[in-house]
């Protein structure tokens, strides 16, 4: 599989990671090497195989729809880059 510079720019945008024009070539080369490794698995015939994500095939538990956690806003916001009056501050998104 080969990735173009545009592919890298598109993925980087989707991932919300800034990749400068100087970096694109380097990133492209490394990712191509990794995809070469990954593409080894494409040849395996897996028709009819049920995909697995948990070895014991457990099903997710349900819990009662009840309030179990206390409001811990102040404590949890202590790590915010910018916060005020209980809100996280970000650049203006609505004009």
């Amino acid at each position: 599989m080969s990735l173009s510079a545009q592919d890298i720019e598109r993925i980087a945008h989707l991932a919300r990671i800034r990749v400068t024009p100087d970096e694109v070539g380097q990133v492209q080369a490394k990712l191509e090497g990794i995809f070469k490794l990954i593409d080894d698995m494409q040849s395996v015939n897996t028709k009819g195989v049920e995909p697995m994500s948990h070895g014991l095939d457990m099903v997710l538990r349900l819990r009662d729809d009840a309030v179990t956690e206390k409001n811990d806003r102040e404590n949890l916001q202590r790590n915010a880059p910018q916060a005020a009056e209980g809100y996280f501050l970000v650049p203006k998104v609505i004009e």
Partner: peptide
């Protein structure tokens, strides 16, 4: 970036699903 690519539109079956089947 790899993860974003393999989960992006149109690639799920070829990558994440195939990997899940190999796990089995």
């Amino acid at each position: 970036l790899i993860g974003t690519y393999v989960l992006s539109h149109g690639y799920y079956d070829a990558y994440y699903l195939q990997a899940g089947k190999l796990r089995r």
